[in-house]
Amino acid sequence: MVSIDILYKGLNMKMLQKSIQNKENQANGTPLVKCLTECEKGEEVVVLRVNAGRNAKTRLANLGVVPGVKITKTKNAPFKGPLEIIVKGSALVIGRGLASKIIVECNRACKN
């Protein structure tokens, strides 16, 4: 789980409230906001925010990784390598360092 402080950085009020809400959910054992690296294989999540540098952020945005978009994590490379997600029907490989800066929210529809 990412520490909540990191999440606050640069988040606007709406997201802040969401995070607080999530913190409460977390107490019940259902963390909803996390970074992409923490997701399970095959989990479908919604992108909340990309906390990366300008270049990487632009690139990701151009490829469709923007807040609000649904992505599915499909692969984890061995030895803490990159991971693969499906975004808008195409597979994208993202380095682990960058993936840890992508904050996602677990879809409410999915169980955990």
Binding site: G10, N12, R49, V50, R54, A61, G64, V66, V69, K88
Partner: peptide, 14 residues
């Protein structure tokens, strides 16, 4: 928007 400009514009296009 609480987002950087590239994300705003890309989101709009998408």
């Amino acid at each position: 928007h609480g987002e950087d400009i590239n994300t705003i514009i890309s989101s709009e296009i998408y």
